[in-house]
Protein backbone atom coordinates (compact mmCIF):
# COMPACT_ATOMS: atom_id res chain seq x y z
CA UNK A 1 0.00 0.00 0.00
CA UNK A 2 1.02 3.58 -0.61
CA UNK A 3 0.72 4.45 3.09
CA UNK A 4 3.28 1.72 3.88
CA UNK A 5 5.73 3.20 1.38
CA UNK A 6 5.20 6.70 2.79
CA UNK A 7 5.67 5.45 6.35
CA UNK A 8 8.88 3.63 5.43
CA UNK A 9 10.33 6.53 3.44
CA UNK A 10 9.42 9.02 6.14
CA UNK A 11 11.10 6.90 8.79
CA UNK A 12 14.21 6.54 6.63
CA UNK A 13 14.48 10.27 5.92
CA UNK A 14 13.90 11.17 9.57
CA UNK A 15 16.82 8.90 10.57
CA UNK A 16 19.08 10.29 7.84
CA UNK A 17 19.93 13.38 9.83
CA UNK A 18 22.67 14.60 7.47
CA UNK A 19 20.37 14.61 4.46
CA UNK A 20 17.52 16.01 6.51
CA UNK A 21 19.67 18.91 7.71
CA UNK A 22 21.37 19.82 4.43
CA UNK A 23 18.41 19.07 2.20
CA UNK A 24 15.57 20.56 4.21
CA UNK A 25 16.84 22.19 7.40
CA UNK A 26 19.77 24.32 6.38
CA UNK A 27 17.94 26.87 4.24
CA UNK A 28 15.58 27.99 7.04
CA UNK A 29 18.66 28.58 9.23
CA UNK A 30 20.26 30.45 6.36
CA UNK A 31 17.07 32.49 5.99
CA UNK A 32 17.29 33.40 9.67
CA UNK A 33 20.91 34.45 9.28
CA UNK A 34 20.39 36.50 6.10
CA UNK A 35 17.13 38.07 7.21
CA UNK A 36 18.55 38.66 10.68
CA UNK A 37 21.53 40.46 9.13
CA UNK A 38 19.18 42.57 6.99
CA UNK A 39 16.71 43.34 9.75
CA UNK A 40 19.22 43.96 12.51
CA UNK A 41 22.55 45.14 11.13
CA UNK A 42 21.51 46.86 7.89
CA UNK A 43 18.55 48.51 9.58
CA UNK A 44 20.91 49.89 12.22
CA UNK A 45 22.67 51.81 9.46
CA UNK A 46 19.48 53.77 8.75
CA UNK A 47 18.77 57.14 10.43
CA UNK A 48 17.09 56.79 13.81
CA UNK A 49 13.73 58.03 12.51
CA UNK A 50 13.68 55.48 9.73
CA UNK A 51 14.79 52.70 12.11
CA UNK A 52 11.90 53.45 14.44
CA UNK A 53 9.24 53.24 11.73
CA UNK A 54 6.61 50.63 12.53
CA UNK A 55 7.01 47.32 10.76
CA UNK A 56 4.07 45.38 9.33
CA UNK A 57 4.51 41.81 10.57
CA UNK A 58 1.82 40.56 8.20
CA UNK A 59 3.79 41.85 5.26
CA UNK A 60 7.00 40.33 6.66
CA UNK A 61 5.33 36.93 6.80
CA UNK A 62 4.04 37.27 3.25
CA UNK A 63 7.51 38.30 2.06
CA UNK A 64 8.95 35.19 3.75
CA UNK A 65 6.47 33.01 1.85
CA UNK A 66 7.19 34.84 -1.41
CA UNK A 67 10.94 34.28 -1.01
CA UNK A 68 10.72 30.69 0.26
CA UNK A 69 11.52 29.06 -3.08
CA UNK A 70 14.50 31.20 -4.02
CA UNK A 71 17.60 29.84 -5.77
CA UNK A 72 19.30 28.88 -2.49
CA UNK A 73 16.28 26.90 -1.34
CA UNK A 74 16.12 25.12 -4.68
CA UNK A 75 19.85 24.35 -4.57
CA UNK A 76 19.61 22.63 -1.20
CA UNK A 77 16.27 21.01 -1.98
CA UNK A 78 18.00 19.37 -4.96
CA UNK A 79 20.38 17.71 -2.49
CA UNK A 80 17.50 16.50 -0.32
CA UNK A 81 15.60 15.19 -3.34
CA UNK A 82 18.71 13.45 -4.70
CA UNK A 83 19.23 11.60 -1.41
CA UNK A 84 15.56 10.75 -1.07
CA UNK A 85 15.02 9.52 -4.62
CA UNK A 86 18.55 8.24 -5.26
CA UNK A 87 19.39 6.58 -1.95
CA UNK A 88 18.33 3.13 -3.09
CA UNK A 89 20.66 3.35 -6.09
CA UNK A 90 23.54 4.69 -4.04
CA UNK A 91 23.27 2.14 -1.24
CA UNK A 92 22.22 -0.66 -3.63
CA UNK A 93 19.12 -1.27 -1.53
CA UNK A 94 16.50 -1.62 -4.24
CA UNK A 95 16.97 -5.39 -4.02
CA UNK A 96 15.97 -5.07 -0.36
CA UNK A 97 13.08 -2.66 -0.85
CA UNK A 98 11.53 -3.43 -4.23
CA UNK A 99 9.91 -6.80 -3.40
CA UNK A 100 8.13 -5.29 -0.37
CA UNK A 101 5.77 -3.01 -2.28
CA UNK A 102 4.80 -2.11 -5.84
CA UNK A 103 7.24 0.02 -7.79
CA UNK A 104 4.63 2.74 -8.31
CA UNK A 105 4.08 2.92 -4.56
CA UNK A 106 7.82 3.12 -3.92
CA UNK A 107 8.20 6.21 -6.14
CA UNK A 108 4.94 7.78 -4.95
CA UNK A 109 6.00 7.16 -1.35
CA UNK A 110 9.23 9.02 -1.93
CA UNK A 111 7.37 11.78 -3.78
CA UNK A 112 4.92 12.19 -0.90
CA UNK A 113 7.71 12.38 1.68
CA UNK A 114 9.56 14.89 -0.47
CA UNK A 115 6.39 16.96 -0.82
CA UNK A 116 5.85 16.98 2.96
CA UNK A 117 9.51 17.74 3.73
CA UNK A 118 9.66 20.59 1.21
CA UNK A 119 6.39 22.04 2.56
CA UNK A 120 7.86 21.89 6.07
CA UNK A 121 10.95 23.69 4.74
CA UNK A 122 8.77 26.48 3.35
CA UNK A 123 6.96 26.94 6.64
CA UNK A 124 10.29 26.87 8.50
CA UNK A 125 11.66 29.56 6.18
CA UNK A 126 8.57 31.71 6.80
CA UNK A 127 8.94 31.17 10.55
CA UNK A 128 12.62 32.17 10.51
CA UNK A 129 11.80 35.18 8.35
CA UNK A 130 9.18 36.23 10.88
CA UNK A 131 11.50 35.69 13.86
CA UNK A 132 14.19 37.78 12.16
CA UNK A 133 11.62 40.51 11.50
CA UNK A 134 10.46 40.56 15.11
CA UNK A 135 14.05 40.57 16.39
CA UNK A 136 14.89 43.45 14.07
CA UNK A 137 11.92 45.45 15.32
CA UNK A 138 12.73 44.68 18.95
CA UNK A 139 16.40 45.61 18.69
CA UNK A 140 15.74 48.76 16.67
CA UNK A 141 12.87 49.83 18.92
CA UNK A 142 10.28 49.94 16.17
CA UNK A 143 6.68 49.02 16.95
CA UNK A 144 5.20 45.91 15.35
CA UNK A 145 1.91 46.45 13.58
CA UNK A 146 -0.72 44.36 11.89
CA UNK A 147 -2.19 46.29 8.97
CA UNK A 148 -4.43 43.62 7.45
CA UNK A 149 -8.02 44.11 8.48
CA UNK A 150 -9.40 41.34 6.33
CA UNK A 151 -7.83 38.20 7.76
CA UNK A 152 -9.48 35.95 5.20
CA UNK A 153 -7.80 37.81 2.36
CA UNK A 154 -4.45 37.80 4.17
CA UNK A 155 -4.63 34.04 4.74
CA UNK A 156 -5.69 33.48 1.13
CA UNK A 157 -2.65 35.42 -0.08
CA UNK A 158 -0.35 33.69 2.41
CA UNK A 159 -1.43 30.16 1.49
CA UNK A 160 -1.37 31.02 -2.21
CA UNK A 161 2.23 32.21 -1.86
CA UNK A 162 3.11 29.05 0.09
CA UNK A 163 1.46 26.93 -2.59
CA UNK A 164 3.34 28.77 -5.32
CA UNK A 165 6.65 28.20 -3.55
CA UNK A 166 5.72 24.55 -2.95
CA UNK A 167 4.91 24.01 -6.63
CA UNK A 168 8.32 25.40 -7.56
CA UNK A 169 10.09 23.05 -5.13
CA UNK A 170 8.02 20.07 -6.31
CA UNK A 171 8.97 20.89 -9.86
CA UNK A 172 12.68 20.85 -8.97
CA UNK A 173 12.36 17.74 -6.79
CA UNK A 174 10.43 15.67 -9.29
CA UNK A 175 12.88 16.63 -12.02
CA UNK A 176 15.54 15.18 -9.71
CA UNK A 177 13.41 12.03 -9.35
CA UNK A 178 13.30 11.62 -13.11
CA UNK A 179 17.06 12.20 -13.43
CA UNK A 180 17.80 9.73 -10.63
CA UNK A 181 15.85 6.96 -12.34
CA UNK A 182 17.27 7.86 -15.73
CA UNK A 183 20.93 8.02 -14.68
CA UNK A 184 20.86 5.89 -11.50
CA UNK A 185 23.16 8.50 -10.04
CA UNK A 186 22.65 11.08 -7.31
CA UNK A 187 25.29 13.41 -8.70
CA UNK A 188 23.71 13.34 -12.15
CA UNK A 189 20.38 13.99 -10.50
CA UNK A 190 21.67 17.25 -9.02
CA UNK A 191 23.81 18.34 -11.95
CA UNK A 192 21.09 17.97 -14.59
CA UNK A 193 18.49 20.18 -12.85
CA UNK A 194 21.22 22.73 -12.14
CA UNK A 195 22.07 22.64 -15.83
CA UNK A 196 18.38 23.06 -16.66
CA UNK A 197 18.31 26.07 -14.32
CA UNK A 198 21.35 27.54 -16.02
CA UNK A 199 19.82 27.03 -19.46
CA UNK A 200 16.68 28.76 -18.21
CA UNK A 201 18.66 31.70 -16.90
CA UNK A 202 20.44 32.09 -20.22
CA UNK A 203 17.43 31.23 -22.36
CA UNK A 204 15.17 33.46 -20.28
CA UNK A 205 16.63 36.54 -21.90
CA UNK A 206 16.38 35.10 -25.39
CA UNK A 207 12.83 33.88 -24.84
CA UNK A 208 11.58 36.97 -23.00
CA UNK A 209 8.12 37.89 -24.24
CA UNK A 210 7.57 41.36 -25.71
CA UNK A 211 5.22 42.01 -22.79
CA UNK A 212 6.73 40.20 -19.78
CA UNK A 213 3.37 40.31 -17.98
CA UNK A 214 1.67 38.31 -20.74
CA UNK A 215 4.00 35.50 -21.80
CA UNK A 216 2.54 32.76 -23.98
CA UNK A 217 2.04 29.25 -22.65
CA UNK A 218 4.89 27.80 -24.72
CA UNK A 219 7.34 30.28 -23.20
CA UNK A 220 6.27 29.30 -19.70
CA UNK A 221 6.47 25.62 -20.56
CA UNK A 222 10.04 26.15 -21.71
CA UNK A 223 10.85 28.33 -18.70
CA UNK A 224 9.09 26.91 -15.64
CA UNK A 225 11.03 29.29 -13.39
CA UNK A 226 9.43 32.19 -15.21
CA UNK A 227 6.03 30.52 -14.85
CA UNK A 228 6.56 30.35 -11.08
CA UNK A 229 7.50 34.05 -10.97
CA UNK A 230 4.39 34.97 -12.95
CA UNK A 231 2.15 32.98 -10.61
CA UNK A 232 3.85 34.50 -7.55
CA UNK A 233 3.46 38.00 -8.96
CA UNK A 234 -0.22 37.32 -9.47
CA UNK A 235 -1.03 35.89 -6.03
CA UNK A 236 1.12 38.31 -4.05
CA UNK A 237 1.10 41.32 -6.34
CA UNK A 238 -1.54 43.41 -4.65
CA UNK A 239 -0.51 42.57 -1.09
CA UNK A 240 3.23 43.02 -1.62
CA UNK A 241 3.51 45.52 -4.46
CA UNK A 242 0.19 47.33 -4.13
CA UNK A 243 -0.86 46.56 -7.70
CA UNK A 244 -1.94 43.64 -9.83
CA UNK A 245 0.07 43.35 -13.04
CA UNK A 246 -0.70 39.75 -13.99
CA UNK A 247 -4.11 38.85 -15.34
CA UNK A 248 -5.88 35.78 -13.97
CA UNK A 249 -5.74 34.08 -17.39
CA UNK A 250 -1.96 34.44 -17.53
CA UNK A 251 -1.70 33.21 -13.95
CA UNK A 252 -3.75 30.14 -14.82
CA UNK A 253 -1.50 29.42 -17.78
CA UNK A 254 1.55 29.72 -15.53
CA UNK A 255 -0.07 27.28 -13.08
CA UNK A 256 -0.76 24.92 -15.97
CA UNK A 257 2.87 25.14 -17.13
CA UNK A 258 4.10 24.24 -13.67
CA UNK A 259 1.68 21.34 -13.30
CA UNK A 260 2.82 19.98 -16.65
CA UNK A 261 6.41 19.96 -15.35
CA UNK A 262 5.49 18.48 -11.97
CA UNK A 263 3.13 15.77 -13.16
CA UNK A 264 5.15 15.10 -16.32
CA UNK A 265 8.45 14.58 -14.47
CA UNK A 266 6.91 12.35 -11.79
CA UNK A 267 4.90 10.31 -14.28
CA UNK A 268 7.98 9.82 -16.46
CA UNK A 269 10.01 8.74 -13.41
CA UNK A 270 7.33 6.19 -12.46
CA UNK A 271 6.99 4.84 -16.00
CA UNK A 272 10.75 4.46 -16.36
CA UNK A 273 11.16 2.86 -12.94
CA UNK A 274 8.32 0.40 -13.54
CA UNK A 275 10.21 -1.05 -16.50
CA UNK A 276 13.71 -0.65 -15.13
CA UNK A 277 15.89 -3.71 -14.63
CA UNK A 278 17.40 -3.68 -11.16
CA UNK A 279 20.15 -6.09 -12.09
CA UNK A 280 22.67 -3.78 -10.52
CA UNK A 281 21.26 -0.81 -8.73
Amino acid sequence: MLTDAISSEGYKLWRNRTALFWGFGFVPLLALAIQGFTEIYLRMQLPAAARAMPSDIGRTILLGAAQASGPLTILFILIGAAVLFGGEYRWETWRLMAPRNSRVNHVLGKAAVFALASLATIFAIVLMHTIAGLLGSFINGSPVEWKHDNLAIWFAVFFSLVLTAWLQLLQAGFLVALCVVLFRSMIGAVIIPLFVGLIQAIGGQQLQAADPTHPELWRMLLLPGMAADILRAHVGGKALMGMQMIEPKTALLSLLAQLVWIIGALAAAILLFRRQDLSKE
Binding site: D4, S8, Y11, K12, T18, E92, N101
Partner: peptide
Protein backbone atom coordinates in the same frame (compact mmCIF):
# COMPACT_ATOMS: atom_id res chain seq x y z
CA UNK B 1 23.12 -3.70 1.55
CA UNK B 2 21.39 -1.36 3.94
CA UNK B 3 21.08 2.40 4.40
CA UNK B 4 24.29 3.07 6.35
CA UNK B 5 22.80 5.59 8.77
CA UNK B 6 20.31 3.10 10.23
CA UNK B 7 20.99 0.68 13.06
CA UNK B 8 20.12 -2.99 12.63
CA UNK B 9 16.90 -2.52 14.59
CA UNK B 10 15.95 0.65 12.69
CA UNK B 11 16.60 -1.18 9.42
CA UNK B 12 14.09 -3.86 10.40
CA UNK B 13 11.58 -1.24 11.56
CA UNK B 14 11.91 0.59 8.25
CA UNK B 15 11.48 -2.65 6.28
CA UNK B 16 8.52 -3.66 8.44
CA UNK B 17 6.83 -0.39 7.57
CA UNK B 18 7.58 -0.90 3.87
CA UNK B 19 6.00 -4.36 4.10
CA UNK B 20 2.91 -3.05 5.87
Amino acid sequence: RFPPFLTARQTLVMLSRASG
